[in-house]
Simulated scan of single mutants.
Amino acid sequence: MKQMLTIASPVFLLLLWEFLSRTGLIDIRFFPPPSAIVSTFFSLIASGEIVSHIGISMYRIFAGFLLGVIPGVIIGLLMGLYSPVRHFVSPIVMALMPIPTLALLPIIIIIFGIGDMSKVVTIAGSVFFPVVINTVAGVINIDKIYLDVAKNYGAGRVNFFLKIALPGALPVMLEGIQMGQAIALLTIVAAEMMGATSGIGYLIWTSYKAFLLQEMYVGLILISFFGYLFSILLRGIQKKMLPWR
């Protein structure tokens, strides 16, 4: 029943949109019917244009996501485990976190150029901070009894890091990673709008400027679809890694 309701809500929204467009209750110039958007999507697939945009955006998202998550997890674990590291790094994290990564995009483009690397670095910067903050919180909230047991049994630093800190921080850390993937999608669209010649964000922006709104909606729906897909995948990974939850 719950799965049916989950499917029913987007289907209902699309049917309502189709009905309102076809009956003229909403302006078809700005809100073309979903059936027309689907037709445009298949036309873009047939031409090969949309496949190219999806491929380059997915590459940038995954590369930027990994570049942000891996250092974020490592630094977050170190900050959570070692007070001197936390006190040294926290002011830097707290000072840089409020600055939107997109505000730094002009500087990033100057340093890395207008190619893929600037987009990857922009996404990495956006993903890094929620992962760090959640990982630190996850480590700090580990029950002290586990830390004491590990010390009493003479656990080495590697075992302590991999068998106590990492598993203990996983629940909160994975929430940060889940948040990071949503931010990565938001960032890639904005970054490709501002300084790119390809990608889904570029497709959305150029379609808007040319008033090709059906193509623009194709890009928007693709971003929504991938966000939903990535969220489901990460939830599945979370269930596998945290079966006790």
Rank of each mutant, 00 (worst) to 15 (best):
M1D: 05
K2Q: 11
T6Y: 14
L13Y: 07
L15D: 06
T23L: 07
L25I: 10
L25T: 13
D27L: 07
F30I: 10
F30W: 12
F31A: 15
P32Y: 12
S35T: 15
A36F: 15
E49Y: 04
I50C: 06
V51P: 00
I56W: 00
Y59W: 08
A63V: 10
G64M: 10
L66H: 05
V69W: 07
V69P: 09
V73E: 01
V73R: 05
H87G: 07
M94Y: 12
M97S: 12
M97P: 02
P100E: 02
P100V: 01
L105G: 05
L105A: 09
P106F: 05
P106L: 07
I114C: 03
G125W: 01
S126P: 00
F128C: 04
P130E: 05
V132F: 10
I133F: 09
N134P: 05
A137Y: 07
I140R: 13
V149R: 05
N152W: 00
R157F: 11
L174G: 06
G176I: 09
Q178V: 09
T187C: 09
G199D: 00
I200T: 03
G201K: 00
T206A: 01
K209A: 11
Y217E: 04
V218Q: 02
L220R: 01
F225W: 05
F230L: 10
L233F: 14
